[in-house]
Amino acid sequence: MPFEVPFVQRALLAGILVSLVCALAGTWVVLRGMAFLGDAMAHGLLPGVALASVLGSNLMLGAAASAGLMATGVTALGRVRGLSRDTTIGLLFVGMLSIGVIIVSHSRSFAVDLTGFLFGDVLAVRAADLVLLAVASAGAGLVSSLGYRSFVALAFDVRKAHTLGLRPRLANALLLGLLTVAIVVSFHVVGTLLVFGLLIAPPATAVVWARRIPTVIAGAAVVGSLATTVGLLVSWHWGTAAGATIAATAIVLFFASALAAHLHRRVRPALPDVEREAEQAQ
Rank of each mutant, 00 (worst) to 15 (best):
R169T: 14
A155E: 05
R149Y: 06
S53V: 10
A278G: 11
W236Y: 15
A76K: 11
G56C: 08
R211K: 13
G191N: 04
S98L: 08
L199R: 01
R79H: 09
T180D: 09
L91C: 10
Q280D: 14
L59T: 13
L175E: 06
E4F: 14
F119K: 02
L271K: 10
G139F: 00
I213A: 11
P2S: 01
A124T: 10
T163P: 05
V112W: 12
T205S: 13
L69Q: 06
A65I: 13
V184W: 00
A64M: 11
L179C: 03
G48H: 05
G78S: 01
T229G: 10
P6R: 08
A182I: 01
L154C: 08
A111L: 14
Q9S: 04
G26W: 04
A124N: 11
R265C: 08
V208G: 02
A171Q: 07
F151L: 13
P214C: 03
G120W: 00
G62H: 02
V80A: 11
T228F: 01
R169Y: 10
L146M: 11
A182P: 03
A50M: 02
L232R: 01
A140V: 10
L31Q: 04
L130A: 02
H237G: 13
R212F: 09
L142P: 03
I217Y: 00
R126W: 09
A242S: 13
T215S: 15
R159H: 12
G243T: 06
R268D: 13
A206I: 04
L13K: 01
A63Q: 03
T72G: 14
A63K: 06
L118E: 05
A14C: 01
T228L: 07
S98T: 12
L271A: 12
Y148C: 00
V184N: 03
I213Q: 11
S145Y: 15
S57W: 15
V21F: 00
L199E: 00
G139W: 03
A260D: 07
F156L: 07
H262Y: 15
S137L: 12
V21H: 00
A161F: 06
T87P: 06
T88R: 11
L83N: 07
I16F: 10
A35D: 11
G116S: 04
R266G: 15
A111K: 15
S109G: 11
L154N: 09
F7M: 07
G90T: 06
F119S: 05
L12S: 01
G73T: 05
L37V: 13
T240I: 08
T205L: 06
L24G: 00
L31R: 03
A124L: 12
F117E: 04
V131I: 13
Q282N: 14
S105P: 08
G147C: 09
G191R: 04
D273N: 12
T88M: 07
G38P: 03
P272H: 02
L13Q: 02
L164C: 09
V94S: 12
G68S: 04
L59P: 09
Y148G: 00
L178M: 10
R32A: 06
V112I: 13
L20R: 05
T180S: 14
M1L: 10
L132K: 10
L77S: 13
H188Q: 15
F3V: 05
G95E: 02
K160H: 15
L253P: 06
I251W: 11
R108D: 14
